Amino acid sequence: MGFKLLSKLLVYLTASIMAIASPLAFSVDSSGEYPTVSEIPVGEVRLYQIADGVWSHIATQSFDGAVYPSNGLIVRDGDELLLIDTAWGAKNTAALLAEIEKQIGLPVTRAVSTHFHDDRVGGVDVLRAAGVATYASPSTRRLAEVEGNEIPTHSLEGLSSSGDAVRFGPVELFYPGAAHSTDNLIVYVPSASVLYGGCAIYELSRTSAGNVADADLAEWPTSIERIQQHYPEAQFVIPGHGLPGGLDLLKHTTNVVKAHTNRSVVE
């Protein structure tokens, strides 16, 4: 069995187990497998329904001669939608809004960016022009300005110390501490036991640490421990890039980060 097929099978099995364990909360999309990078042309966006009122959005972007996937989250909030992270750029984010209108038909009224990198804030200006209120932590807003990236308009308070959590509509926002970046936030959907790890969490097929220019490698494993301790009931975990899975993604990420750190020390 090929690795790609095995990865998709694991996603399907995880979703099936969740649907059985929580039949009222989960209505997993039966329309197909989780979209992969090879299936999404740059400039297009796919939506994948995880649970009743919960979707991931998947886009792709060219970077350094390669094409990478990027995940975000959409959560229903009454007759409105909360968006977590842009679709990595203005063109993708405009396509995301169009796809949401086509498939869901509810307005996106608020959006949260989970850290300051372009795959999370690139497209904020498109959201703002569409009347979406954009939010991020003060740290993310400051770092985005320093980096020359787009800056969300509103500040999220109460997320300055490791372990801080605040309720934001249908989700809980959690600051686990520094990891992929010093400002990275985690998003949890309690009604569906869905954990969105953003770039602080890796997919299972990833074996290298990737972009760690703004990471705190020493603190990252401790931050992941905080996530595990705060959300032990999480059933569906979405990484910032690639295929979702279960809580095993947290341990896998820790292993990859520690291996990278150990290699760096040896070198």
Rank of each mutant, 00 (worst) to 15 (best):
L127D: 03
G65T: 06
E80P: 04
G32S: 08
V75H: 04
R128F: 15
D125W: 09
D183Q: 00
H154D: 12
S27E: 07
L81N: 01
F26Y: 08
T134P: 02
R263I: 05
V124M: 14
G163Y: 13
Y68F: 11
G177F: 00
A15D: 14
M1I: 04
G53W: 11
G43E: 09
V42K: 10
L159T: 04
D248E: 12
L195T: 01
S264C: 05
L159K: 02
H117L: 00
V121W: 01
V45I: 15
T36K: 09
I84R: 00
L97R: 01
E157L: 13
A209Y: 10
Y68E: 08
E157A: 12
A130F: 15
V256H: 03
R128K: 14
A87D: 00
F174Y: 15
N255M: 07
M18K: 05
V28G: 09
G242D: 04
V37R: 09
V121E: 01
V75W: 02
I238Q: 02
V11I: 06
P239S: 03
P232V: 09
E225L: 15
A129E: 09
A178E: 09
F168D: 01
L82G: 02
A165V: 13
G123S: 03
I201W: 02
S113K: 04
S31F: 05
S70A: 11
E225S: 08
L47S: 01
R141A: 12
E101W: 15
M1D: 03
G2E: 07
H57E: 01
T153D: 07
G245R: 03
F3S: 11
V146Y: 15
A111P: 03
G163C: 03
I74S: 03
D214Y: 13
K102S: 13
V257G: 01
Q229D: 09
L127Q: 01
G65H: 06
V146C: 14
Q49P: 14
S181D: 00
Y175W: 09
L13V: 09
G89P: 04
N71Y: 02
K251D: 06
L106Q: 07
V11K: 05
P41E: 11
Y34F: 06
S205G: 12
L24D: 08
D119C: 01
V37D: 11
A130R: 14
R263N: 15
H117A: 00
E145F: 12
Y135E: 00
A129W: 11
G240C: 00
E150I: 05
L9T: 10
A130D: 08
D29T: 10
Y34K: 07
S56K: 05
I227G: 02
K251V: 06
T207L: 13
L96I: 05
D214L: 12
V257Y: 03
S30H: 13
H241F: 00
A234D: 01
L217H: 07
S70Y: 04
S162W: 13
V108M: 13
Y188N: 04
H180W: 01
I84L: 13
S113V: 14
T93V: 01
A136P: 03
I58D: 03
T14N: 05
G158Y: 05
R206D: 11
L13C: 07
L247Q: 07
I58G: 03
G169L: 03
V108S: 02
L156S: 01
A19N: 15
G65Y: 06
L73H: 03
I224L: 13
L143G: 05
D85A: 00
A178Y: 08
L250N: 01
R128N: 15
L5N: 14
V146Q: 10
L204S: 12
P176V: 01
L9K: 07
T14Y: 12
T93C: 03
H154G: 12
D29V: 08
N149E: 10
K258A: 12
A144E: 03
P170G: 09
L185A: 02
S137A: 12
P176E: 00
F174P: 02
V37T: 09
S155P: 06
R120L: 01
M1L: 04
S113L: 15
V256L: 15
A25Y: 06
T253S: 07
V187P: 03
F168Q: 02
G65W: 07
F116V: 03
C199V: 00
D52Q: 06
G245K: 02
I224T: 04
P244I: 06
A215N: 13
L250K: 01
A192C: 04
P190D: 09
D52P: 07
G240Y: 03
A25H: 14
L159A: 02
H180Y: 04
L13T: 14
W88E: 00
G131I: 04
Q49E: 07
S161A: 11
R142E: 12
D64L: 13
P232R: 11
A90L: 10
P138Q: 10
L10R: 08
I58C: 11
H252E: 03
T86Y: 03
D119L: 00
H230T: 10
I74C: 04
L247H: 15
V11D: 07
H180P: 00
V37W: 09
V187N: 02
M18R: 05
E101L: 14
L10D: 06
L185Y: 02
D119Q: 00
A218D: 10
V132H: 00
D164N: 15
S38G: 08
Q228T: 06
L83R: 01
Y48F: 11
V132P: 00
V189S: 04
P69Q: 05
S113P: 04
S205T: 06
E203Q: 14
K4M: 05
T207R: 11
R142M: 12
S27L: 09
L185C: 02
N184Q: 05
E33Q: 08
I58T: 07
A98L: 12
P107F: 06
V237I: 05
G65R: 08
S155N: 13
P190I: 05
L249I: 05
H252W: 05
D77C: 05
G240Q: 01
D85V: 00
T140D: 02
G2K: 11
S113Y: 04
T261I: 05
S139Y: 05
Y188L: 02
G53F: 12
G246L: 04
L159S: 02
E267T: 13
S113Q: 05
R142K: 15
Y188A: 04
L96Y: 00
A21K: 08
C199F: 00
D52S: 10
V108L: 12
L10P: 05
S264A: 14
P221R: 12
V237E: 00
A25N: 05
E267L: 08
V54N: 01
L83V: 13
P244L: 06
L156Y: 02
A95R: 12
G245W: 02
E203R: 02
A95M: 14
I50V: 08
G32T: 06
L249A: 01
I238Y: 04
S27V: 07
V42G: 12
W220Q: 00
Y135M: 02
T261A: 06
V265D: 11
S27P: 07
G122N: 15
F168A: 02
I151Q: 05
P23M: 06
F116K: 04
T222A: 14
Y68L: 09
F3C: 05
G242M: 03
A87Q: 04
R76E: 10
I20N: 15
G169I: 04
L243V: 10
V75L: 12
A259Q: 14
A95Y: 15
